[in-house]
Design a protein around this nucleic acid. Structure first.
Lengths: 148, 148
DNA sequence: GCTCATAGTTAGGTAGTCTAACAATTAGGC
DNA sequence: GCCTAATTGTTAGACTACCTAACTATGAGC
């Protein structure tokens, strides 16, 4: 017999909600907030437009602008003009930003790795194996027609 | 060879971050927000103290008080005295709250179920199979000594 | 019954988000 | 070539949710 989709959806939403709260608990004193880390992660692979940052972060453009302004004030990113479109602005990670990002990612990954270590090897493999499916599910949710 | 924990932690954090943003996108116009749904879900199995709500939600007590006050103003919960401790307050779902919660949960589950439907049966089974491991991982993160 | 701990509320402040309005630039029709 | 319409980003103003600190009321220990 097949899986009841509604029931699976409910259980998945449950653990997701829990995980969300826990993610915030990984914010440490004096370090970058989860949102700042997310934004820095986005621009870590190359300069990105403000509108692209907003889109990936799931927020409106003004909110992204505000985040970028704060990161710029902290010297973690810089805004450079887009050579192909004078309206656009590219956000680029500075060396200082790279350093701060690596440090924050390292700390967060270490925390998560420590938690993973308490699981059995089988459980870790199950989670590792589920990541592609969850990524695909994320994409499917994102593609949804606005919860009509 | 075994899985690299740091690497797995990073990949897991990635899909989690993505899922977090998507969860918010499931908030619909005129309906309950994700946080309100979470709070209502907590008291849906029985009256609960404000401090317990705060703890489960991962916020401080004043924040929980504020949420409860808003839900009460909307007629979705009611505050009743705790017979065993006059300091405490129990938060109970009202019939109207039950109705609103069921409706919101139904809509959200339907959205998630629709996304799940785009996956293959194997992928759905992988996700279903990973839920217990992820729940255990959540518990492990929660038990962590404050990211020392 | 005094003192200390606990449960919750209130007050004041901060961070992040939104919509609406605006400036600057690009693209397209003619 | 220009004039209009669309796009990119910022600014302004308001709202929500969160925090810490201070307070009230009740319970617990001696």
């Amino acid at each position: 017999m097949s899986i009841d989709l509604q029931e699976l959806a409910g259980r998945y939403r449950d653990i997701l909600r829990q995980a969300v709260y826990l993610t915030r608990s990984m914010d440490a004193e004096g370090e970058l907030s989860t949102r700042h880390v997310s934004t820095l992660n986005m621009v870590s692979t190359g300069p990105m437009r403000v509108s692209a940052i907003a889109s990936y972060a799931g927020v409106r453009v003004p909110s992204a602008t505000e985040q970028v302004i704060k990161l710029e004030a902290a010297g973690l990113v810089e805004r450079i003009p887009d050579a192909t479109d004078a309206r656009a602005v590219l956000v680029r990670l500075t060396p200082k930003g790279r350093e701060a990002l690596d440090s924050a990612n390292g700390r967060r990954n270490a925390t998560m790795a420590a938690a993973l270590e308490t699981l059995s090897r089988e459980e870790r493999q199950i989670i590792a194996g589920a990541i592609p499916a969850i990524a695909k599910l994320n994409a499917a949710v994102a593609a949804q027609p606005a919860t009509a």
